[in-house]
Design a protein around this nucleic acid. Sequence first.
RNA 1: GCCGGUGUGGCGAAAUUGGCAGACGCGAUGGACUCAAAAUCCAUUGCCCCUCGCGGGGCGUGAAGGUUCGAUUCCUUUCACCGGCACCA
Length: 961
Amino acid sequence: MAELETPFRYDAAFADSIERKWQAWWDQRGSFITRNPGDAGFDISKPKFYVLDMFPYPSGAGLHVGHPVGYIGTDIAARAKRMQGFNVLHPMGWDAFGLPAEQYAVQTGVHPRLTTSSAIETFRKQLKRFGFSYDWSREFATIDPEYVRFTQWIWLQCWNAWYDESTQKARPISQLMQQFESGARSVELPNNINKLWSECDAREQRQAIDNMRLTYLGEQLVNWCPKLGTVLANEEVIDGKSERGGFPVMRQPLKQWMFRITKYAQRLLEDLKLVDWPESTRTQQAEWIGRSEGAEIYFRVHGDAAGQTNKTELEPLSVFTTRPDTLFGATYMVVAPEHPLVKRALELASAAARKEISDYVAASRRRSDIDRQSDGKIKTGVFLGLFAINPATGADIPIWTADYVLLNYGTGAIMAVPAHDQRDHEFATAFKLPIRVVVLPPQEAAQLSHRLQSQHQGRSGTVETETAYGGDGIATASSNAEVSLDSLPSAQAKEKIIAWLQQRGIGKKRVNYRLRDWLFSRQRYWGEPFPVVFAPDGLPYAISESALPVRLPELEDFKPTESDTPRPLLGKVVEWINTTAGHAGVSAADLPPQTPVKRETNTMPNWAGSCWYYLRYCDPKNTTRFVSTEAEKYWMGERGVDLYVGGSEHAVLHLLYARFWHKVLFDLGHVTTPEPFAKLFHQGMITSFAYQRADGSLAPADTVQEISDGVFTEKSTGQSVKQVIAKMSKSLKNVVNPDDVIANFGADTFRLYEMSMGPLEASKPWNTRDIVGSFRFLQRAWRLAVDERTGELLLAAKADDALEKLLHRASKKVGEDIERLAFNTAIATLIEVVNAATRSTTLVNATDGGLTRDQMIRFVKLLAPFAPHFAEEIWHKLGCAEALATASWSTVDARLLVDDEVELAVQLCGKVKTRLRVPSSADAAAIEKMALADPKVIEMLAGKTPKKIIVVAGRLVNIVA
RNA sequence: GCCGGUGUGGCGAAAUUGGCAGACGCGAUGGACUCAAAAUCCAUUGCCCCUCGCGGGGCGUGAAGGUUCGAUUCCUUUCACCGGCACCA
């Protein structure tokens, strides 16, 4: 019966009907189609705003409530900016190559293309239900052949470019050829031999070029994951296991495509200053790049024990150290087990020693990172039977190999200074190697230097210390006939020893980065093929641009060949692999068309597509260029994407890779900004409740009941459990499906709820119980405008002064809050307006309260970015014909923001004692006078004279007695 | 171990530049309307104490100090939790 009385009530069914109605209307009118410069109707006078969500990978499971958080945020920003007169670019598309679809294919035989396209369908449908104002005409997926074509084209740009150290930027390889040919640059061959271009044979010339390309085939120790049947980037390996799936990863030497990202290390680090990003993300990137300053030092190496003459001199051993000032304290050397010197040592060693060494090397290769981790800091190693000469002391020091030294960092070898490095100290203690103190902590240096110095002199320069002192201090026991560091602080000691090393030609200043070159080959099927083939001589040849894209061949069986040696899946498609240069599209200038060639069978990793999608959105239909110059210039503007929103889990990988590609394209003149993303924002995670038993284990949500407010028990046992916050997971049965929420409340309520939960960047627990608050707000707002019994508009005949002021304040506040992405407080402000305007049920004449037509128009404009369907419905009820979504934002009348009178708090010694109404024009002296005249103040002062009175305009008066 | 972040009512949270702590929502309690319920509207709702009541007082932003007329906000120390990195020479 009740429903009959109010047939025009805002309920779930009604929300559903208007949401679908307006979505169809916007769609049909193309309300959110964005025009490019040059298009008909493009308005050049408007400023641009590019607001972008991180590229979603559509999984078969569809959206969960965590996905939309960022999308709602960007949609609010996009809608507000559009109303504020910007040309807004707000696109969406799909990162569609990747492992999950391929793993599903392995299990079921269903082609990844089918899985992927149905997942995209699901995602698109779910996203559309939220009423996001994306320009869907710009949608694309990374698997689209036209997109693949330009992904491959960018890779070819890197193939055809080299990094010019002198100008610190990438340049076309043709310019390198010119330098070689003119003799301005000589060819560097292995072993530091330089040769003129004209003296090189064709193969040497070819190698000289290939060694300079930004993408190159490198023999690398790779992370091979037999279970996934692919190698992984260092970044994709966590604790010795694959990031996806958690399978064991082994190290294996392999020729793989690499990017010379390390050339960009300094710029990737420096340019972090140019972007408006969360501090934590910039820090993470900086730490990942890991710049450290120090020196490279070369040690002479020989194969005989100390004291002997006729030493067998070997190749010098080069080390990187950040503490060259401790050179006098280097008492032994360590090389990584994979270091080339180990091979030399094996050749020279006795049979017994050889076995010991090779056993150790084999064992450390077998040990995965996870084993190394669990062993903690227990140091292992073996003496190689070789000695280095410490150039500072002239002493023979033993060379060991140990797996605490990593091949991939620095030179893969260290000088060990056990007195000043904790790891070296542990190793030296374990193997009874000498420890020599050469730096004194500054505070001790003054008093203790005499005693300590005499101590090491007494023990031939060796002291027992419990732990290493790794800090800066004063150098001691560090002098020889040519140089003395004694009594110098560490910074000066470093400079002095580097100068000495440099002068002697046995060392130099060096900056080292933790960042390594980017391994870009995968042995998977579902990725972009490389536009390259191999000639019979094994050398790679690029496929010309006109022959792109190289398409994936069809495949029936997606199971990787599980083996200890990496085998790409495409290796199975023999008829595709074997082709001719002409057929594959290699330029006839490079290879005669009839030359038999083999295609590259590795594919690109998932990251490739997400490295440049933000550029493609500027001009997604372009068939001649990856993006037109005009579109890129307009939408990227001065600083790139204006607002980029996505999860903080991409703080390093995606953002670093995309910045790298962008910088290459920038150097080559294809894009105009040095950085892709001006402002970055990470939305917080949506967590959920879970229930913890007394033993700390978690009970699934559906096995728990709430017996009274905040008291929960497990149904089966009756044991009480504690409500805690956890990630949503299938096993905890606490995953919330957005479709269900929308079915119960509508998309507008969903949007409002997720935005009012708290700050956009904070992690927040989903609480279904709270959603009704957002729903009630919309119902109240609806009742404010519409008579639920008749569906007729309900508007006040006359504006209420207080309401008018409140609405103005709200306009200002909502505008400011949207600007700083503080949507939760913006919504609170809108609620206040509605609450203030709400009519009492006891009111006889409904038109006595509420908002006037003009006020209602202004109110729905404020509401529009948050609850766009609801606002559009009322807007049209009010008789407006054009889309609210593109109407102009309300302006704020500054005069109405000022009150005639303000209430001040009156404090006595910082404690609020009373309140005082004063004219807002009153100055400090007048306010002081009024405060002192207040009866309450007189009473409290009890005749005492205040020492000091502080007046804060519009806020408070503090009387210090 | 290093780096970054967070900590405020029963719960989610607010306080933007050092200026009235707890906006707004949930929940709870009471009332109006109703035969009744739902819905709606109104009121109360940080904790403690005094008071029949009207009122009044004290405490309070993880903890302990400090700077200041005044601190959720700044500084020092410390605890807890979350995220990232980790034998990086």
